[in-house]
Design a protein around this nucleic acid. Sequence first.
DNA 1: CCAATAGCTGCATAGCTGTTCATGTCTTCA
DNA 2: TGAAGACATGAACAGCTATGCAGCTATTGG
Lengths: 108, 108
Amino acid sequence: MKARLRINEDEVVELAEMFRLMSDPTRLKIILACLDEPASVGAMADRLEISASLVSHHLRLLRAARLLQADRRGRMVFYVVGDPHIRSMLTDMADHVAEEVEGEIEPG
Amino acid sequence: MKARLRINEDEVVELAEMFRLMSDPTRLKIILACLDEPASVGAMADRLEISASLVSHHLRLLRAARLLQADRRGRMVFYVVGDPHIRSMLTDMADHVAEEVEGEIEPG
DNA sequence: CCAATAGCTGCATAGCTGTTCATGTCTTCA
DNA sequence: TGAAGACATGAACAGCTATGCAGCTATTGG
């Protein structure tokens, strides 16, 4: 017998909130930028070619949701994806999308 | 050597779009409602206690993104999550969220 | 103290989006 | 044919949100 999906209202909302945080391209890039190793705010802004202010705005949300963890070292603050589960899920999904794109065929 | 980000701009946008579709609680409930087995629009509306119109609006987006597949049987249309990868990811994430909120009371 | 660097935050706003209501379309049955 | 059921869709609206700008804190170093 297959286990029916038991997830209550609050858990659905929490899961949706998680997805919401990853649903903005800029924010998702930020998450991916510190997926494997910690990255500073300035480094991310530089690499993604967006303002440090915008990066900070997004980091605020990601921090609040505990999706990223901050680690201050001197003047710089390094961020990294804390949850291993989220990390592996993102890695997995990134691979999935990358594979999917190369064989995309539009059905008539 | 560690695998650096193997995902380009377009893929990030596509992945973000995927997450966006799962980022609304109502829409996520709809997806979860037809995760294991096909469900009709009316059944989902009834079960989730929302209007069939709203369900249809969400289904339209999910269909367009090929996240759900439609199967007409008579007057009714059944929807189901097509991609096995997405399906397993959602099952996994649902479990993750359920475990994360420890100390909770299980119904039944 | 001052200056420079790195990052954070309040405010304003244009654009997006989830929902409702009314109507349209497709299918089955009398 | 007409009616009813099941679903889809268009328009409108209220609430949300990503972004830019300006100013702010915090740390390092003289």
